[in-house]
């Protein structure tokens, strides 16, 4: 693998993402909403010197949970399928460049673009918070941003997996939006339904929740932002007591790492076995 080629592709992707209307729109929406939410929520963030895990943190987590998976899944899904549909992929491959270089370059390029927009959104929100004087602990705020970046990486790799198996960008986008719904609503709804219907125990609910990367992100950020874990109820207390604060955090991080590595690895293998005429 020639890293010069990869570097050129990274720059190409970065430039393409600015040209991509959807991507710019998502970034603007995310930043604007983050700004607005925090301006509204931090107005009553402190009484008598105490502040809690209030609406500020909850709204930030919610915003990340809604937007980041959508951006990551959709951009990932159209990344390869779009070029394949337009024929630009075979054009690219006619240059002295390998498929693994294209894959790596695309992934890193898009990941950087998404990370940039996360950083932008969090940065604007952070400025709003510090101007309102509701600052608090910067390390917690940064940690939430880092967790969002990891969440973005895991869903981008799921997006790539969709992209590799789709010949048309429209189909890929459709699947991505459906998966987004599954991750943020339908999956959790399913667990909630089974908990009520089948009277699932604490352990089962916790294990089922671990299968959803967005839920894992949420638990990890509550763990970061909240001084205690009881806010997540008996399941949270169980997880906290079983693994301890650090152990639980590493467990959640490794689940997210698996969510990056497995789909990405599978996508990479499938992409590299594709024959030239299939592209």
């Amino acid at each position: 693998m020639d890293f010069r080629n990869v570097y050129i592709l990274i720059r190409k992707e970065a430039r393409d993402s600015v040209k991509n209307w959807w991507f710019v729109l998502y970034t603007i929406c995310f930043s604007a909403l983050a700004l607005l939410l925090l301006f509204l929520a931090s107005s009553r963030s402190e009484i008598a010197g105490f502040s809690g895990f209030g609406r500020t943190a909850a709204s930030l987590i919610n915003l990340v949970l809604l937007f980041i998976p959508l951006i990551a899944l959709v951009t990932g899904a159209i990344s390869i399928s779009n070029e394949r549909e337009n024929g630009t992929l075979s054009y690219l491959l006619s240059h002295p460049i390998t498929k693994s270089e294209i894959f790596t370059g695309k992934f890193i390029g898009l990941l950087l673009s998404i990370w940039f927009s996360i950083s932008l959104g969090f940065g604007l929100a952070g400025i709003a918070i510090s101007i309102r004087g509701g600052g608090g602990d910067i390390s917690k705020f940064l940690m939430t941003a880092v967790l969002s970046a990891i969440l973005a990486a895991s869903l981008l790799s799921v997006g790539f997996l969709i992209s590799v198996f789709s010949k048309k960008a429209a189909k890929a986008t459709g699947i991505a939006v459906f998966l987004w719904l599954v991750f943020i609503v339908i999956g959790d709804l399913g667990i909630m339904g089974s908990t009520v219907a089948m009277d699932l125990g604490i352990k089962q609910v916790f294990i089922l929740a671990l299968f959803n990367p967005t839920e894992v992100f949420k638990i990890a950020s509550v763990l970061t932002l909240s001084p205690r874990f009881e806010v997540l109820g008996p399941v949270g207390i169980y997880a906290f007591k079983t693994f301890g604060r650090e152990g639980l955090f590493y467990l959640l991080l490794s689940v997210m790492a698996l969510w990056i590595l497995i789909p990405l690895g599978y996508a990479f293998l499938s992409f590299s076995v594709l024959r030239r005429e299939e592209l």
Partner: peptide, 29 residues
């Protein structure tokens, strides 16, 4: 309320670093 200068500086960096990097990447490409 406590005003935290560090918070403001880091947040501002989080806004400007991506913008600068972006500009750099796009221009060179």
């Amino acid at each position: 309320k406590k005003f935290s200068m560090g918070f403001l500086i880091i947040s501002t960096l989080m806004v400007f670093i991506p913008l600068v990097l972006y500009f750099y990447l796009v221009k060179k490409t």
